[in-house]
Simulated scan of single mutants.
Amino acid sequence: MKKASILLLLSFVLAMPLSAAGTQESAAAKEPLVGVSKFLAHPALDAVEVGMQDHLESVGKSVRFDFQNANADVSASAQIAQKFKADNVDIAVGIATPTAQALVNVFTDIPVVFSAITDPLGAGLVTTYDTPYTENTTGVSDMNPVDAQIELLARLTGAKVIGNVYASGEANGVTLMEQAKAATENLGLEFVTAAVSNTAEVMQATQSIIGRVDAIYIATDNTVISALPSVDDVASKANVPLMAADPSNVEGLDFLVAWGFDYYKIGLATGKIIEQLLDGKEPGEIGTVFLTDPTDFELWFNLDVAAKLGITIPDDLKDSAAVVIQDGQKIVR
């Protein structure tokens, strides 16, 4: 009798961890599943992922993430969207235009959140910026102040001809190229472009225009930005100043100036949208978020490159910079 009691007690004790583990698994399964499709890995888009997670953690939102990387492959973006559908994700997030477009083509019954999209309207992700609307899409735009960027580059360098390399198959790349072209024309400058279809073509495209331009402007074009070292190499050897609209990708390069979004903050804004959706808001109530606060942007100068090219950076601009490179050192202000 005593032996039977001990065996019964032992079986109960041994069962406890299994029961607790089962409860934990059940609780985890109830957490919302967020599928995140990123077009490719580079510092800006990686920072969006981190900021998104950090915001949700800061407000105590427990979710399960499925992170997928399309590796700059449009067909892979479509496959990821189908995977998310098969897995019954609760919210689908597309970081960069091709992945967001793939999600919108597949999902109509759950929220699709786009992030780091230059022109959501032109990309077909929304049909209006006015809220409320009935579509299942919402997200964050990274539309840059292209006019001001081109004006700054011209002011610093005195360039009469500005070059640009862009991805012809990427909606945001085409939009930004057209905006840069209009900005140069408004300033009475010439604009020379070279189109690419993938990152492998970026160096050759840059070489094709380098002898005809006084400066190069690279927008937040994911395909080109991911191959920015190739642009930098060609421009540096030709002593042609380079401006990038994405500061997160210029560290270690011979750029002259970089001015654009802090993509971690775009990630924070994306996380806030997910938080609102989890709290019951409809995508059409949120709409497209545009970041306009000056603190959302960063200005970087490479004073070593400026000295090499004989360019003087005015003190007022240096004082407003978030980062300067001097004597090979990164100085954060």
Rank of each mutant, 00 (worst) to 15 (best):
Thr138Tyr: 06
Thr138Arg: 04
Thr138Val: 09
Gly139Cys: 06
Gly139Thr: 03
Val140Ser: 02
Ser141Ile: 00
Ser141Lys: 00
Ser141Gln: 00
Ser141Pro: 00
Asp142Tyr: 02
Met143Ile: 05
Met143Glu: 13
Asn144Trp: 05
Asn144Val: 06
Val146Met: 15
Ala148Pro: 00
Gln149Lys: 07
Gln149Arg: 04
Gln149Cys: 06
Ile150Asn: 03
Ile150Leu: 07
Glu151Asp: 10
Glu151Ser: 09
Leu152Ser: 05
Leu153Cys: 11
Ala154Val: 14
Ala154Gly: 07
Arg155Asp: 07
Leu156Thr: 06
Thr157Gly: 12
Thr157Ser: 11
Gly158Ile: 13
Ala159Cys: 10
Ala159Arg: 11
Ala159Glu: 15
Val161Trp: 03
Gly163Lys: 07
Asn164Ser: 04
Val165Leu: 08
Val165Asp: 09
Tyr166Asp: 09
Tyr166Phe: 15
Tyr166Cys: 06
Tyr166Leu: 04
Ser168Asn: 08
Ser168Trp: 00
Gly169Val: 07
Gly169His: 06
Glu170Trp: 05
Glu170Gly: 03
Ala171Asp: 15
Ala171Glu: 14
Ala171Leu: 11
Ala171Arg: 14
Gly173Ala: 10
Leu176Glu: 13
Leu176Arg: 05
Leu176Ala: 07
Gln179Ser: 12
Ala180Met: 10
Ala180His: 07
Lys181Gln: 08
Ala182His: 01
Ala182Ile: 01
Ala183Ile: 07
Ala183Asp: 12
Thr184Met: 01
Glu185His: 11
Glu185Gln: 13
Glu185Asp: 11
Asn186Ala: 15
Asn186Val: 06
Asn186Cys: 08
